[in-house]
Design a protein around this nucleic acid. Structure first.
Lengths: 243, 243
DNA sequence: CGTACCCTCACCATTTCTGGGGAGTAGAAA
DNA sequence: TTTCTACTCCCCAGAAATGGTGAGGGTACG
């Protein structure tokens, strides 16, 4: 049971155990340990790949997890949708549950034992990488508010550490070093991303449009892109240009 | 001076003072307080807008800050470029300083008292928002490694709190609810960002190219984009599509 | 001192994109 | 029930981007 007094429990051992974890099975065990330590119903880490692939790890029941994947709830789940637009950790109460799909989802989640309260920490990386660290529980609002106030900072740190570990075991998810662009190529990509036409970019850079085309083509080649839009998208997601 | 023993200093008062800060001037004071508390040379918070606008706050000298802005070092600074590609907090030693521009930049930074060591925490938000919380210092590698090991977690929490505060005082930077795209528009933008031509996207979505064009045009309109490339770039930087 | 990469400029033919129209369905919201 | 939004389809002509090929001068590095 969750106590309203919410005495600060020591965080260090949790983080240390987490940092010692080796392999995905250990992460699974770590989430259970965190759950038991804080005496909440569930602790979940949820990764959403840049390609839309998912990876989850936590204490939700298998049936709920399977159902979630099977129904592609990723695109309905208000927790995902809400956190994806937010900077900071968020209490589930502050999310938008107004749509019909969202309420149906919520009802089904509670039915599967997810809990009526929740707190999720969004974690973002380059290339649109996104993960969530979530704690959920069943209790009344005041109890939950007290608990989250007391453990908010802990959860941020645990989320970070958990994410670091999860990335460590999945090197595929760390972005590979891509070939860099020349200054002029960066200029070209940047202005194109800002919506300038080729003629406008050439004018802005005070070069002929022919020259500009050479840059765009070489950038496209370096980025392995099939067209200008693709090249700009890749340059952005690789952080080669900042728009 | 930075002590190698790195006894854990209490973090709570720092965070509490930070959370009490009201206004940008208070944040400036907070960065100085953090600097003095940890006895490092500099503490800096640096925001990079999705439009390329910057906002900085910290203990760097005015001359260096002006120089940085004036020279548009944003696009050269290996700390920015490196952290933009990274998930986790990073020690400056692990960044890529190999290019000529980078080394020139480093030399000039040290000349302006920035310090030869540094540790930066990247913070990301929706819509491609990006900020850095940096601590820099002058000392040898071992001392620095010891210090960062001891305070890594503190810095993550401070970075989060600092960022929360900075956002609070600049509501402009909180993402205006950008008009969302319809599912089909998201599909269209996504495939375009993946390099598909209009014909290919239409084929993939099993709709006519004419229909596809309607989606692209309405997406372009919603995003206030001047052309397809611009629309895709905006959709990406606003986190509306994930590629 | 050669190699390699970057910056600059040019033409031609073809493909692709864009902007201007108009029109019907279904489902959800008001 | 009406209204609104999303989704689907169509034509045409002009604007823009692309692909292929070629060439010269500059700087950096071994």
């Amino acid at each position: 049971m969750l106590s309203v007094t919410t005495a600060r429990q020591p965080l260090e051992p949790i983080l240390e155990d987490l940092e010692k974890a080796e392999g995905l099975a250990a992460l699974q065990a770590a989430s259970e340990q965190i759950r038991d330590h804080y005496r909440v119903d569930h602790v979940v880490y949820h990764w959403v790949d840049s390609a839309g692939d998912q990876y989850g790890c936590g204490t939700y029941s298998d049936t709920w997890r399977d159902r979630y994947l099977e129904q592609n709830y990723l695109r309905v789940d208000p927790v995902i949708l809400g956190c994806f637009q937010r900077f900071h950790p968020v209490d589930w109460k502050r999310l938008d549950w107004s749509s019909k799909a969202a309420r149906a989802f919520q009802a089904e989640a509670i039915e599967h034992g997810v809990g009526n309260q929740g707190f999720s920490v969004p974690i973002r990386g380059p290339n649109g990488q996104f993960a969530l660290f979530t704690v959920s529980h069943s209790c009344d609002d005041d109890t939950w508010a007290g608990w989250t106030d007391a453990h908010r900072r802990d959860l941020i740190l645990i989320a970070h550490t958990f994410n670091e570990k999860a990335l460590e075991f999945e090197p595929d998810r760390t972005p590979e070093q891509s070939q860099s662009l020349s200054p002029r190529e960066v200029d070209a990509m940047t202005f194109l991303a800002m919506g300038y036409s080729r003629a406008q970019v050439a004018d802005t850079l005070a070069i002929s449009e022919h020259t500009l085309r050479v840059y765009i083509e070489s950038a496209r080649f370096k980025l392995g892109a099939m067209n200008t839009t693709h090249a700009v998208a890749r340059a952005m997601s690789r952080g080669l240009i900042v728009v």
